[in-house]
Write a protein that binds this DNA or RNA. Structure first.
Lengths: 348, 348
DNA sequence: CCTTAGCACTCCCGAACCCAGAGTGCTACC
DNA sequence: GGTAGCACTCTGGGTTCGGGAGTGCTAAGG
């Protein structure tokens, strides 16, 4: 039976089922639904509709003679159909603005984001600061000699993100040389993206070596040491609210699996960047994570890119149980994503 | 009955009980113990000894006619009595050295520490980089103007720890002034501890204002902005291996409590710094955490200070179930603590 | 005096069992 | 198409019961 035959009555019943299921956690049956229904439909009628919805794949039956439970499909339909209606509650708004006052630094903002999201939703708050070396424009670079053969490199981008890294060099470069190297880079490459600096630098190293010789060799050293590569690796992950996951009667083993996944920072990064579309601004709701990650059964991801102006500096998301308050969480995620841009842009 | 009457037979039985309890998780009875005991004591004899040990407070009985379970006291006695004997296993040693090769930066080292510890033990690996502004000696400080009224401050200490922070200023300080300010501080205070720089700077600001006027006002601004205060707050916490906690048949609510505690970074910091004695090098084993933190029932902390030379730069610890492999974990913690000093010192 | 054997007693835990409640599908009727 | 009724099914909670493991005590033996 095709999905097309979903009329307004069917839709109403579907949302009613999903909402009571989210509220109670029990499979919901026709009788229960018949009560508390304004249109006073009889259980039998509802049963018919439910049978249709089940055929359409929107509902599932744990076993014969149990109530119905929404399927991933059902959730998707539900979410689609409610998107955009709700407003963020005043309480949430207060909580959020309180948590973010006085922050001007994307790193810090993202760190708190994970915390705030975990508070607002009944899920895990996740935020990553993006690896987007492609987009970030250089503001400054510093080098400082720490010890023999060890150099501290600090890269600052236009959007205010700071990354530091200790490099180990083959030879010892004196502080004076480091400073000229930094000056050279700052003078020639300010405003360039990290990515283009790297290619251009590689080109110049080939070409101009004869000219500046000394300067160029130290720059080459630093370059090889990875001064500018760091953006690729150092994307930080902020996770908070894991305790929220201990709700359902999951068997222990699955819970462990899940936590383990959450601890593997790399997989979170993959998860977010594969699902959160950085090209468009909207909040993305992913239902049915288990299709790709079996450990993530019964979990949903609600995420959005974090951007400052045109630059995407990371992603933020909530990972929570399928039985979650979608409206609430979606509006919160969207609100924070917007706030992110607003706060960080006006302070630049 | 006083503890003093613990003879060698009693001790042997106690360790046997604790070890089988750690292995099985079941309360251990006299019969079970009588098997697998080389001295071939009869169950009855063992029962007598067990009764004594219970009177001494080293064992507990979940209920009449159940086996015995070690009490916190019992664990303490056990741990005391085994300290120092075991050697770290080759496998662990390999794992550890593999994980730490090529690291020269305390931050990074601590971050991996939490990971490695969670792998080795069946517990949560925790590491904090210490707030010890008192001990760290200044190597360099940088300031850079990011935007109007926003300044990036980077402080590097002798031990190679780098901290950055975005300061917000009342007035806009041009880059040139920032550089002279940094030069002033670097010239006058290199090698000082952060703490003493702060007091001295405050003194000079009072006294010498008339002289350098312009320079001093910008320094004052930076000072007030918190350029040097950051050490107090920015102690980072690395936690890993939470999934390991899902072992026992804890009721859900307690587990959540525990995870919540682990998420509150501040409390971990308090926990570690109150228990891990930074003054002495040894590994500290704390049994009975629940006495202060009820959520931490059935958990043990095994921690040690992380130091580079004389300077304490943080702490590392394992938080795990009381039923854990003590020898194994203690040796691992101790080994990593020593490695920490060794690796970072030789590379300075 | 310490150790051992025997014995009666206690308590937990899992298996079997049963029953009420909630739900379903189907058929017949309006 | 909507509704009412009915026979059937499945789950989940409560109860009962017996085996197993363990204890404490007493009495006998080295």
């Amino acid at each position: 039976m095709p999905i097309s035959n979903i009329g307004s009555r069917e839709r109403e019943i579907l949302t009613a089922i999903i909402e009571t299921y989210i509220a109670t956690g029990e499979p919901v049956g026709s009788r229960t639904l018949a009560r508390g229904n304004k249109d006073r439909l009889s259980p039998a009628t509802i049963r018919n509709v439910m049978a249709d919805l089940a055929d359409a794949g929107l509902l599932e039956q744990p076993h014969t003679s149990a109530g119905r439970v929404p399927s991933p499909q059902g959730y998707r339909y539900y979410v689609e159909q409610l998107t955009g209606k709700a407003q963020i509650s005043q309480a949430d708004q207060d909580l959020i603005t309180n948590s973010f006052t006085g922050i001007g630094d994307p790193q810090e903002f993202l760190e708190r984001t994970s915390h705030v999201l975990s508070l607002i939703s009944r899920g895990v708050g996740v935020a990553i600061s993006s690896r987007s070396g492609e987009k970030n424009e250089l503001e400054h670079v510093y080098f400082s000699r720490l010890a023999s053969g060890k150099v501290l490199a600090v890269v600052v981008t236009k959007s205010g993100v700071v990354r530091d890294r200790v490099l180990r060099m083959d030879r010892d470069i004196p502080q004076a040389e480091l400073e000229s190297a930094a000056n050279y880079i700052n003078a020639n490459f300010q405003g360039w993206t990290i990515e283009s600096i790297r290619t251009e630098l590689a080109r110049r190293l080939e070409q101009e070596r004869s000219e500046y010789d000394r300067l160029m060799t130290s720059i080459e050293q630093l370059y090889r040491g990875g001064a500018l590569h760091q953006q690729d690796e150092q994307n930080t992950v902020y996770v908070e609210g894991v305790s929220n996951l201990i709700v359902s009667e999951e068997d222990r083993e699955r819970l462990r699996e899940m936590l383990r996944v959450l601890e593997e920072k790399q997989r979170i990064i993959e998860l977010l960047s594969s699902y959160v579309d950085t090209k468009q601004e909207a909040v993305r709701v992913v239902i049915g994570l288990e299709e790709r990650l079996p450990e993530m059964r019964n979990l949903v991801l609600i995420g959005a890119p974090a951007r400052v102006g045109e630059q995407v500096v990371g992603s933020l998301a909530v990972i929570g149980p399928t039985r979650m308050d979608y409206e609430h969480t979606i509006t919160a995620v969207s609100y924070i994503a917007q706030l992110f841009d607003k706060v960080l842009n006006e302070n630049q």
